[in-house]
């Protein structure tokens, strides 16, 4: 780190800063200028810059390296590609995950799986354990819901992503899902993240409602540090002063994360806007900005959905969106499921 002293800092103040840095294990490169002294602290020690910022006479402490290591592109320059069966997330192909917010019934899950498969999705999404803002809202079908989702995914040759809310659910959800999702509200549930680090199943980590990109990458670091290197990130909108949309989808997070990290980044335009009529625009923007994938809520009868109906697309809207994405992706050198699969005879 670089410690910039105040213009009027005394020799004693500079000495106290150096003494603290030496004690922390840093080597010092001091440079006394006409107006201010700059102290370079070099070493492998990671230290809390605030410990230095609090010392008398310190103007500013600048950190040179990121606090996260395994998630950093400095650590691993090439992109991470996560393989889930024949689906590769983080490669050239933009992977679309779609399906209902929650599993509600076998029929509903089956209809949604058939619809998203027909449109070209590779992964079925669907929650069995739902974190809801209100304890009185529908909480999910649990294990029964997982069985419905797995069955529908298998029938339509789709992979399955489902949310895990707490450590005790990991072993159950692992049995059914191909990707474990950590929701925005759990992004800083460090016990859960540590336990997911021990899992072998890929994890999609959503960005917290008010999380900075650095906090988000530090949360990914918890999973990576535990030994699970198959982590993808998911931008799902952050809370801002704007109230027209449910959240403000941070499209700029895509290039920023791709610069800072090697992990794939998925975008959730459904939660990102909270409004069905805005989902397609943001999905197109996300693909154009270089997202590695999308996760979109699709419901065959959204007006009667038990959760997130307002942001769930009708299958016809989703079809149209996929057709548009097939035009956008090649423009930036990416591919996306080329033909609607129905024409290839996958559909039942």
């Amino acid at each position: 780190m670089v410690v910039v002293m105040q213009e009027r800092a005394t020799g004693e103040q500079v000495e106290r800063v150096i003494a603290q840095l030496v004690e922390m294990g840093f080597d010092i490169h001091r440079s006394t200028g006409a107006l201010r002294t700059v102290i370079g602290a070099v070493g492998r020690t990671s230290a809390d810059p605030r410990l230095i910022e609090l010392l008398d006479g310190v103007h500013e402490v600048l950190r040179i390296t990121e606090p996260y290591k395994l998630a950093s592109r400095t650590f691993k320059p090439e992109n991470t590609v996560i393989t889930v069966g024949d689906v590769r997330i983080g490669g050239d192909e933009v992977i679309v995950m779609a399906g209902p917010c929650s599993a509600e019934s076998a029929e509903q899950v089956e209809a949604a799986a058939a619809a998203v498969k027909r449109a070209g999705a590779k992964v079925l999404r669907g929650g069995a354990y739902k974190p809801r803002s209100s304890p009185y809202s529908f909480q999910g079908l649990g294990g029964e819901g997982l069985q419905m989702l797995r069955g529908a995914a298998d029938r339509h040759n789709l992979k399955l992503i489902s949310e895990v809310m707490e450590s005790s659910q990991i072993s159950t959800i692992e049995r059914y899902a191909d990707i474990l999702q950590v929701g925005a509200r759990n992004m800083q549930n460090y016990t859960l993240l540590r336990d997911l680090g021990k899992s072998k199943v890929p994890v999609m980590l959503k960005r917290g409602i008010s999380a900075t990109i650095e906090e988000w990458l530090l949360s990914a670091e918890y999973i990576l540090a535990g030994g699970n290197m198959n982590v993808m990130l998911c931008e799902r909108g952050i809370r801002t002063f704007e109230s027209y949309t449910r959240n403000t989808l941070d499209i700029s997070a895509i290039p920023v994360v791709q610069h800072l990290s090697h992990l794939p980044i998925i975008v959730d335009p459904s939660h990102g806007t909270g409004r069905r009529d805005k989902v397609a625009s943001m999905a197109r923007a996300a693909v154009a900005a270089g997202a590695d994938g999308l996760i979109i809520e699709v419901h065959c009868d959204p007006d009667h959905a038990m959760s997130d109906g307002a942001q769930s697309m009708y299958p016809a809207q989703f079809d149209r969106l996929m057709a548009e994405l097939r035009i956008i992706a090649p423009a930036i050198g990416r591919s996306i499921c080329l033909e609607p699969v129905a024409r290839r005879g996958w559909s039942r």
Binding site: V22, G25, D27, I28, H29, R30, S31, T32
Partner: peptide
């Protein structure tokens, strides 16, 4: 200052 910084590093 640089000479001293390097001497301190050597001692460490």
């Amino acid at each position: 200052e640089r000479v001293i910084d390097e001497a301190r590093r050597l001692e460490r």
